[in-house]
Amino acid sequence: MEKKNLTHIDELGNARMVDVTEKAATRREAVAAGSITMAAATLSLVKTGGLPKGDVLSTARIAGIMGAKQTSNLIPMCHPIIITSIKIEFLIDDERKSIEAVATVKTVGQTGVEMEAITAATTALLTIYDMCKAVDKEMELTGIMLIKKTGGKSGQFERRL
C-alpha cells in the first residue's frame, strides 16, 4: 500500500479539520453496507411485522437517513454538508439469517459523503438491533464497509468483493 499523509493531522501532529475552501464543488456519491445476523425466528418476526416495536425495516430506514444527516455532529473532523439524496435498501438472506443494509448518499459539494454512507448503514443496523433485542440478544453486526465512492480529487474507489 502506498504511504500517504493523513489529511486530518497537521505538520506538527495536531488534529485538524481539512480546509476545503479552495476545492471545487463536484458531484459525489458513496455506497456503504453492513449486515446483521440473527436467529431464524427473529428474522421471521422482522419479515412478518411480528415485533412489538412495529415495522423494523421502515424504522431502520428512517434512522439511517437521520444518522447520515447527523454525521458531522458525531465524527469530529467531518464537515457539515448538504446531502442531496439518501437511499437505504435492505437485502434479506434467509440462508445466512441476515439483513444487509446498503446506504447510498449523494451530494454536490467540496467534500465526499463516505462517512455519511457508513453512518447511515450502521445506524440502520443499530436500529434493527434495538427493535429486535427483546427477542434476540445474540444478533451480530458485521462487515460494515465502504463499497464505492465517486467524485472529488481522489477519484473513484470500488471495493473488490
Rank of each mutant, 00 (worst) to 15 (best):
I36D: 05
D136T: 01
A101Y: 09
V46P: 04
S154Q: 10
T48V: 03
L57W: 03
I147E: 08
T123A: 13
E95D: 11
N5K: 14
H8D: 03
I99C: 02
V108K: 13
M77W: 14
K3P: 04
M77E: 04
G54F: 13
R96L: 11
L43H: 07
N5W: 02
G151D: 11
F90W: 02
G34I: 05
A134E: 05
T123Q: 08
I9A: 01
A24F: 01
E29M: 15
T42Y: 08
L125W: 07
K69Q: 13
T104S: 12
R160C: 02
K69C: 09
I9W: 05
M131G: 04
A101C: 15
I65N: 02
F90K: 06
V46Y: 02
L51P: 07
G13D: 10
K133H: 01
E116S: 10
K133R: 14
M115A: 13
G13C: 06
V135Q: 07
E140A: 12
L74H: 13
D94K: 04
V105S: 05
T48R: 11
R159M: 12
M1I: 08
I128D: 01
D93Y: 10
T59Q: 08
E116I: 06
A63Q: 03
M1Y: 05
I88N: 05
G151E: 09
T150Q: 08
S85V: 01
D55G: 08
G34W: 07
T119N: 12
G50K: 10
T26E: 11
G64H: 02
A24I: 06
K149E: 12
I9E: 01
L126G: 06
T59R: 00
R160K: 15
I118D: 03
G112L: 09
K87H: 15
E138F: 07
D93F: 11
K4E: 08
M131R: 05
L161F: 14
K3T: 11
L91R: 14
F90L: 03
A33W: 00
A60Y: 05
L126I: 09
V18T: 14
T119S: 11
T150G: 04
T127Y: 12
V46R: 00
G152V: 09
K4P: 00
V105W: 09
D55E: 15
G155I: 13
I88P: 04
V31A: 00
T107H: 08
R96I: 03
T37S: 15
N14W: 00
R27L: 12
C132Y: 03
G67A: 09
T21N: 08
V102R: 12
G54D: 14
K137W: 01
